[in-house]
């Protein structure tokens, strides 16, 4: 068997187990904090800020000089003219009573999931209510099954994406509210489907914020404008 001595000038240790370990242990704590807690993150920050400043600062999206959000963080939409994101269970302080926490969907200051288990009555009741609301908003038949991502809360509460099925189910409602033709919205939606990475990883999905920004910049068609006028 090969000998795995670490150095040729090894010194046989006749030291008792504890002897001389105190200061090296204290020094190791200080030395390693400087290397891994200070130098490493600062060096990484320096290089990242120089080479990839857009992503390193949060992938922020600007519109007319105003930061409207981050490309990777979801935000809340209730307007009928926009595609709606998945349910979010994040909380925030009540504006009327700072001591009280209330539901503030897509509060990126404190991420949160529901953490409700599969046999939790509250979870099933909440989902059933969301299904009813979703059918009503999108004018779906009363027995239509709703894409599961549209009625379940994400893990982070900040999910920026919805499934393609979920987006398609909302397209007609968005077109009507905006006075656009269905095919216009459908076309824009198709352009905004993000595929699997390398054709393999993850799921096909639609980034709600980016799609809604694209919707806002779409010109209203002549046909649709006439319909609105009437």
């Amino acid at each position: 068997m090969n000998d795995l001595n670490l150095s040729n000038s090894v010194r046989e240790s006749v030291i008792s187990p504890l002897n001389g370990l105190f200061w090296p242990c204290v020094r190791s704590a200080i030395f390693v904090v400087v290397v891994t807690g200070v130098i490493y993150p600062l060096l990484t920050t320096g290089v990242a800020q120089r080479v990839l400043p857009q992503q390193a600062n949060g992938s922020l999206i600007e519109k007319n000089g105003v930061t409207v959000g981050s490309a990777v963080i979801g935000q809340f939409f209730t307007d009928m003219r926009y595609f709606h994101p998945r349910p979010s269970t994040t909380m925030g302080p009540d504006p009327h009573d700072a001591g009280k926490m209330i539901a503030v969907p897509y509060n990126a200051g404190v991420s949160a999931g529901s953490n409700q288990g599969p046999t939790n009555q509250a979870l099933i009741d909440t989902v059933a209510q969301r299904v009813i609301d979703y059918r009503k908003i999108n004018d779906l038949p009363a027995n239509a099954l709703v894409p599961v991502d549209a009625v379940t809360a994400s893990g982070s509460g900040l999910d920026p994406h919805i499934s393609v099925a979920n987006a398609q189910a909302q397209a007609a409602r968005v077109a009507e509210a905006r006075g656009l033709t269905f095919s216009q919205v459908q076309q824009l939606l198709t352009q905004h489907i993000e595929g699997r990475v390398l054709g393999l990883l993850g799921e096909p999905r639609v980034n709600v914020l980016i799609l809604n920004i694209a919707l806002d910049s779409l010109p209203v068609s002549a046909d649709a404008a006439q319909i609105i006028d009437k």
């Binding site: 999931g113 599969p118 991502d149 982070s156 999910d159 499934s163 393609v164």
Partner: peptide, 13 residues
């Protein structure tokens, strides 16, 4: 067009 399954607590991507 959708992954289906139990999506409660999971991320779309």
């Amino acid at each position: 067009t959708q992954p289906g399954g139990n999506m409660e607590g999971k991320e779309m991507r």
